[in-house]
Design a protein around this nucleic acid. Structure first.
Length: 885
RNA sequence: GGGGACUUAGCUCAGUUGGUAGAGCACCUGCUUUGCAAGCAGGGGGUCAGGGGUUCGACCCCCCUAGUCUCCA
């Protein structure tokens, strides 16, 4: 049975049992503490913990998941995959153990004709938590499973909790017996290779208290509302039903494995080492495909780095299989074709996905090539020192600084007859890991306890009226001060206020929160910040300026009209700039984040190179033309599917409700999913002026711009600057650039000429100075102060010129000059003088010490000096004496 | 977020406890010569990424900033 078929049957089955079919959430988890969606229940956690009331009583989903913790195990075992799909059925205070067990049994064992999987009941085993007699009883009643195929297990295996106080409960797991050829008899307790876990039923029954580990905590009592959370690993069931050996051989993965084998000329199943590599390729290509599909791009930060690592590991594995040419285009196409039945959006978005992957492949091939040069050097160094292995430091340097994978280093070193010091490498890696972890621990802000909001959220959502009006009358439904629920607020206090409705826009979608006041009779609260701590709930951070406030009070919210207009202008401007960006650069320049507030906008987008000035100007022109065209701005609510069909740009990493708001500017010109506040016509934005463009890491860039009056002010300042320049340089503005260039050039030429001239002039003194040369024995010596000079170079040049005149005889030249308030002293010696044992370095040193400085150099020429200009005469006399010996 | 590395002529890169910045290619001029990266001779071209510090003296050592590459969380 094909994987997509199992998936379909699953959803159909639970839909027939009145479950809401919930589409898979993005792999980018909404929970900021999770990097990815790592389990099927992740999107349902707020409902499980009761933070947010569940919108349905029972639900089912097939959730995309990514886990990279065991990345090194991929390909070596049957069931470690970095990407997998988790089938789940959930009950929120509705059905419990009995139905959960009966559904599971029925779905697995009922015939294929009737929509089940048609698994032979004889092959199924079950485990339960050791104290959970109730489940054993229910299994016996709801299924045909004999008691001897039900095994009891302890807390470690069969008890679920989040690791923190909250819901917890026993689990019951279903195992599939692969048969005697895979291991010994005796159920999952005996052999987990033969008996494969396929389905975990979690019975959220109890409330747990504080505790240290997975199996040591206190049970506080029964939960008022019991939940069911189950997970059936789709890939596991698929590989069992397709009667293949592992999850890399199922229909959704195998084509990539086969293609990799074909490209490398290897035969799958021939050599374990190569098989592992082929499986790694198949697994990682699929994971990267799905991640990029959900909007993750290779980068140096958390999520981006995971994708980068997956992609690079593919390249590495292919190299180890002997393939050096680019292969991503073929591999990704094969993976997409294998996956598109379940995920048709991959097909639509494939151009972008492929380009992202191929860009990374090209970048890494470049990295590998430059790494090879370094590796060659390290190898010849090791060979030169007669070492038998590359040092751990070399291997680590290659990996850490040049991105060269250890495995490749190992292979290439081996070919050169060398080993590698893997232990040292590993210890260096551990040090690096520890450093990063320590830092993360230190920086981690205390995990905000959101439970205080759950109480208010359960009363309902905050109604947002701010699209239509700046004012709203509301009732105070909650007050929170210092994280504690309170009944009233007094003047001067800062606190959070929760209302039944509000016209205040909470910070989201990049738009800063509204500013204004909440008022009542003789009560004034200044709104400092507005946030949505929990989906659907708005919290106003306020300062009580006047009066006091109590629960249940009637108040009015008053958003500052000025602020809102500025915010709307900035947010609409962000959409316009985004559309302009994509028009100029192409659709791949997708926004990856943004921030805007009155007068300012910032927009991060995926792009890998610096924008030229011309491009920036073009983007600015397109933006301002769209503003000038007075395009209509409209907001419409529609379903996600409608919005997508409509061509609206949905941003990755943002999560949207069933019903989404689409903002259009000029009809199709700009269509984005967005909850923000906007102007009603583009002309109201006024003006946008780009101010900065910078890189925020590989593959991502940031534009900053001023909006509206601030844009005008910015341009006015620039104009004033130009005016000042034209004034100082005395040219019309059109000639400004030329004038600056020519002035700079002239200045450089003048400086050159000047220094040549002063050198020339200095040279005229040469004969006179030679004339004055004294002699000691056969050695002539010249000691001269030439006064002010431009630079030490002049003194050196002059000294060399003098020395030339003394060649080929024995001669010593000492020339001093003054430059920048300090003495520059140069001593040069001729060949013969040196042969007679006169060294320039020593002479300079002695004389410089008198000058309060130091000096040194080589025997033929040395430089020194010091700040004591007044001591120069003394120093020169000392020098003469020293030469005279 | 925390580490590591790199930035030198138009291009690719050298540059030795800190002591006059080089090579190859490209460019210009002249000669020679027209068989595939032509040869020979000569020449121009550098704020050694930017800023600050230490020093008599910094491409080199220290600090800050920017850009690029890379590893880890």
């Amino acid at each position: 049975m094909k994987t997509a078929e199992i998936r379909r049957r699953w959803l159909d089955y639970f839909a027939s049992k009145d479950h809401e079919v919930v589409p898979s959430a993005s792999l980018i988890s909404e929970d900021p503490t999770l990097m990815f969606t790592v389990a099927g229940m992740v999107p349902f956690i707020p409902y499980m913990t009761g933070l947010v009331p569940a919108p349905y009583k029972r639900a089912t989903s097939v959730q995309k998941c990514v886990r990279t913790l065991d990345i090194e195990e991929v390909g070596k075992t049957t069931r470690h995959g970095t990407f997998f799909q988790m089938n789940g059925n959930f009950s929120f205070g509705d059905y419990f153990k009995k139905d959960a067990i009966s559904y599971a049994w029925e779905f697995l064992t009922s015939s294929r004709e009737s929509g089940g999987l048609g698994i032979d009941p004889e092959r199924l085993w079950v485990t339960v938590y050791e104290d959970d007699e109730e489940s054993i009883k229910l299994w016996r009643e709801q299924s045909s499973i004999p008691l001897e195929r039900i095994q009891k297990r302890g807390m470690k295996d069969n008890y679920w909790s989040t690791g923190q106080p909250g819901p917890a409960g026993p689990c019951s797991e279903i195992y599939f017996d692969r048969g005697p050829s895979y291991g010994v008899e005796g159920g999952p307790e005996a052999d987990e290779d033969r008996y494969i876990e396929i389905w975990n039923l979690v019975f959220m029954q109890f409330e747990r208290g504080e505790g240290t580990g997975k199996d040591s905590f206190e049970i506080l009592g029964e939960l008022p509302s019991k939940n069911i959370d189950t997970g059936m690993g789709l890939e596991r069931v698929a590989f069992l039903l397709q009667e293949v050996d592992n999850l890399y051989e199922i229909d959704e993965v195998r084509p990539v494995l086969d293609l990799a084998a074909k490209l490398s000329g290897k035969t799958y199943g021939e050599k374990e080492e190569d098989d592992v590599r082929l499986r790694v390729v198949a697994d990682h290509v699929r994971s990267a495909l799905m991640l990029i599909g959900d909007g993750v791009t290779p980068a140096n930060d958390a999520r981006g780095y995971v994708v980068r690592r997956l992609l690079r590991r593919v390249v590495r594995a292919m190299r180890l299989l002997g393939v050096e040419a680019p292969v991503f285009k073929k591999l990704f196409t094969a993976s997409k074709d294998a996956m598109k039945e379940s995920y048709p959006e991959l097909d639509k978005d494939f151009e972008r996905i492929l380009r992202t992957a191929v860009n990374e492949e090209e970048a890494f091939l470049r990295t590998l090539n430059s790494g090879l040069l370094v590796l060659d050097e390290e190898i010849s160094k090791a060979k030169g020192s007669k070492a038998k292995a590359l040092t751990g430091d070399s291997v680590f340097l290659l990996h850490d600084t040049y991105g060269f994978p250890v495995d490749l280093t190992f292979e290439i070193a081996q070919e050169a007859g060398l080993g590698i010091d893997r232990d040292k490498f590993t210890s260096l890696m551990n040090i690096q890991r520890q450093r990063a972890k320590d830092d993360a621990k230190q920086k981690r802000s205390t995990n905000a306890d959101l439970s205080v909001y759950g109480e208010f959220r359960s009363l309902g959502t905050t109604k947002f009226t701010g699209y239509e009006s700046l004012r709203s009358s509301a009732k105070v439904v909650g007050l929170i001060r210092d994280g504690q629920v309170v009944k009233s607020l007094a003047q001067g206090e800062t606190a959070e206020v929760i209302l039944d409705e509000t016209s205040f826009y909470a910070e989201s979608g990049g738009q800063d929160s509204d500013s204004g006041f909440i008022v009542a009779d003789s009560v004034v609260l200044e709104v400092l910040d507005v946030q949505k701590p929990v989906k659907g709930l708005v919290s106003h951070s306020v300062l009580v300026k006047q009066g006091g406030l109590g629960l249940g009070d009637k108040v009015a919210t008053e958003v500052s009209a000025d602020w809102r207009l500025g915010a709307a202008q900035a947010h609409s401007a962000t959409h316009v700039v985004h559309a302009a960006l994509r028009q100029v650069l192409g659709p791949q320049a997708l926004q990856s984040g943004s921030y805007n507030k009155p007068g300012y906008l910032r927009l991060d987008f995926s792009w890998s190179e610096q924008l030229s000035q011309a491009t920036k100007t073009e983007i600015e022109e397109v933006t301002n033309l769209a503003i000038r065209q007075d395009l209509a701005v409209s907001a419409r609510f529609m379903s996600v599917q409608e919005a997508k069909d409509f061509g609206a740009v949905a941003l990755f990493g943002e999560t949207y409700d069933e019903s989404v708001r689409v903002i259009q500017i000029g009809g199709p010109w700009s269509r984005e999913l967005c909850g923000g506040t906007h102007v009603s016509r583009s002309s109201q934005v006024g003006l946008v002026s780009l101010m900065g463009e910078a890189s925020v890491g590989s593959g991502s860039r940031r534009l900053e711009a001023y909006v509206g009056f601030e844009a005008f002010q910015f341009l006015a300042t620039e104009r004033a600057l130009v005016a000042t320049l034209t004034d100082s340089l005395k040219v019309p503005r059109e000639q400004l650039i030329e004038k600056i260039n020519s002035t700079v050039e002239e200045l450089r030429q003048a400086q050159k000429t000047l220094s040549a001239l002063s050198m020339e002039q200095l040279m005229t003194r040469l004969p006179m100075i030679i004339e004055k040369a004294k002699s000691v024995g056969s050695t002539k010596f010249v000691v001269e102060n030439i006064g002010q000079v431009d630079s030490a170079e002049q003194v050196r040049e002059f000294a060399v010129a003098v020395r030339e005149k003394l060649e080929p005889g024995s001669g010593v030249v000492a020339i001093a000059g003054e430059c920048a308030g300090k003495v520059v002293l140069l001593v040069a010696t001729t060949n013969k003088a040196r042969a007679a044992g006169i060294g320039a370095g020593k002479l300079v040193k002695e004389a410089s010490e008198i000058l309060g400085g130091g000096g040194g150099g080589k025997d033929d020429i040395a430089q020194g000096g010091g700040p004591k200009t007044s001591e120069l005469a003394k120093a020169l006399i000392a020098l003469e004496k020293s030469i005279a010996g």
